[in-house]
Design a protein around this nucleic acid. Structure first.
Length: 478
RNA sequence: GCUCCCUUCGUCUAGUGGUGAGGACGCCGGCCUCUCACGCCGGUAACAGGGGUUCGAAUCCCCUAGGGAGCGCCA
């Protein structure tokens, strides 16, 4: 059987992490089985659907590099088709008009709750012969009363639901517009969907949809219900759990393939393996290895996966992904002659691209002010003398390379009879404005002689004009 | 309330009748060390509970408990 899947978001918000995983599973399954995936925008809720959401979904999918083979189809453009099917169901006796008012239905549910039974429509309009004047009727599907529906779910196994648990659901509103359970069935049939892979919050809808498909005498797709992603509180992921919009992860400096890697491992595994490229995912993923139980989203582990991807990615590619973040920081990374070294030296200490940019900043931009804490801690005592000596040595150092710089730093430490920290830390403050950088010799080598000397001098100047700081001319302990 | 689904370390998971229950993230020690980070070594920590079946159950069955989802003229 040719595999045809679909990803059917409703454009009532951004593409969130749960939807992204559903899209991913569909995509992986489709690619793995050389099938075709269709994108379908389920926008029949005119009240809540927005064009911005449609764009956000496209953007999210594109960022994640999840492409599709057909579509996007819009349900709002298929209204005539739904009307036709509703007509057909009415004509064949599989559907009927219901004139119950909302008040009447609410009273019925109230009654049922009081009796402790499942709230559902009791089918009271099934036998109605005369229309109720002044009421625009809805159309209900006449669900079978006997027998049961069997779902052979690829993930859950066999699920059996008695028809007596189901009620006559509304397939057309009183304004004639179709509802979800009708449109999804019609579309899946028309688009010849072979595999329905969706969140398990849809399990309860599946038997109803199967009954409609049967009434339409169409072939049934294979179902696979994937477990939900839960927030740290064990509840279903939602807006209040923070960054759930996929594009938010881009903002925070995640690599799209790292997000995919992490998402795939939520509910799916391949032995003890943790890190996968997208290509490996496509080759290894299979739907029956997906678990039945829901998974809690762990931001810490996502960070780690991201870090591993940052380390493994070719530097040129990494630069392209980081460009967005460099630009936000006002840095033209392409203008940096040593961009390659800057990225390489920082990537292995950065869990996100935002952090990579932060750590790269001082290489690309002038140091304008000094962290007071760092000044207090490292630029004191004879630090000024040390910096002065360093400035002199560096000015004529040849060649300007990490090992030569290393030797000078050691030599100066020896001359002043201090530990390496007493030399390296003041340099860091001068060169970065704070107390953190890669190894000082590499850092200076990349920075270049000119900027190094310049920044040493600038800090020396700063010390002269700031009497609060320890001065180069004052002996220690005075 | 009713229906459906789920249940191995805090989290993600390996495990399909015989394991000292393994890995990963995190966390805690130690080593390394010019800061940060890495790396290395070590440690903490789980089969929800109760009944069966079996020579033997994390693995099979039942019950209980807990969690999740659904019960719309939303999708």
């Amino acid at each position: 059987m040719a595999v045809r899947t679909r990803f059917p978001p409703s454009p009532t918000g951004f593409l969130h992490i749960g939807g992204a995983r559903t899209a991913l599973f569909n995509w992986l399954y489709t690619r793995r089985h050389k099938g075709r995936m269709v994108l379908r925008i389920e926008d029949t809720d005119r009240e809540r659907s927005t064009e911005e959401s449609v764009q956000a979904i496209f953007e999210g999918l594109e960022w994640l590099t999840l492409d599709y083979d057909e579509g996007p189809y819009y349900q709002t453009r298929r209204m005539n088709r739904y009307a036709e099917v509703i007509r057909q169901l009415l004509d064949s006796g599989w559907a009927y008009r219901c004139y119950c008012t909302k008040e009447e239905l609410e009273a019925m549910r109230e009654q049922q709750r009081a009796e402790g039974i499942k709230t559902r429509y009791d089918g009271r309009c099934r036998e109605r012969l005369q229309p109720e004047p002044g009421v625009d009727p809805v159309v209900r599907f006449k669900n079978p009363r006997d027998g049961c529906v069997v779902i052979d779910d690829l993930i859950r196994g066999r699920i059996v639901i008695g028809n007596n648990e189901l009620d006559d659901l509304i397939i057309a509103r009183s304004d004639g517009s179709p509802t979800y359970n009708l449109t999804v069935v019609v579309d899946d049939i028309d688009m010849e969907i072979s595999h329905v892979i969706r969140g398990d919050d849809h399990i309860n809808n599946t038997p109803r949809q199967i009954n409609i498909i049967k009434a339409l005498e169409a072939p049934l797709p294979v179902y696979a219900h994937v477990p939900m992603i839960l927030g740290p509180d064990g509840k279903r992921m939602s807006k209040r759990h923070g960054a759930v919009s996929v594009t938010e992860y881009r903002e925070q400096g995640f690599l799209p393939h790292a997000v995919l890697n992490y998402l795939a491992r939520l509910g799916w595994s391949h032995g003890d393996d943790e890190l996968f490229s997208v290509e490996q995912l496509v080759n290894l993923f299979d739907i029956d290895a997906v678990h039945r139980n829901p998974a809690v989203f762990d931001p810490e582990k996502l960070l780690w996966v991201n870090y591993e991807h940052i380390k493994a990615m070719p530097v040129g590619e990494l630069k392209e992904h980081a460009r967005f973040h460099f630009e936000k920081a006002g840095i033209d990374i392409d203008a940096q002659p040593h961009w390659r070294e800057i990225i390489d030296v920082n990537r292995e200490r950065s869990k996100t691209l935002v952090e990579l940019v932060d750590r790269s900043r001082f290489f690309c931009q002038d140091v304008l002010d000094y962290d007071p804490e760092a000044m207090k801690k490292h630029v004191r005592g004879n630090a000024g003398d040390i910096l002065l000596r360093l400035r002199d040595r560096f000015s004529e150092l040849e060649p300007w390379a990490a090992n030569a710089i290393h030797a000078q730093v050691h030599a100066v430490a020896g001359e002043f009879d201090v530990g390496l920290g007493k030399v390296a830390q003041p340099i860091r403050v001068a060169v970065t404005g704070a107390a953190v950088s890669p190894p000082i010799d590499e850092t200076l080598a990349i920075l270049g002689r000119e900027k190094t000397v310049e920044r040493l001098e600038r800090l020396l100047e700063h010390l002269k004009t700031d009497p609060a700081q320890a001065s180069a001319t004052q002996p220690r302990g005075s």
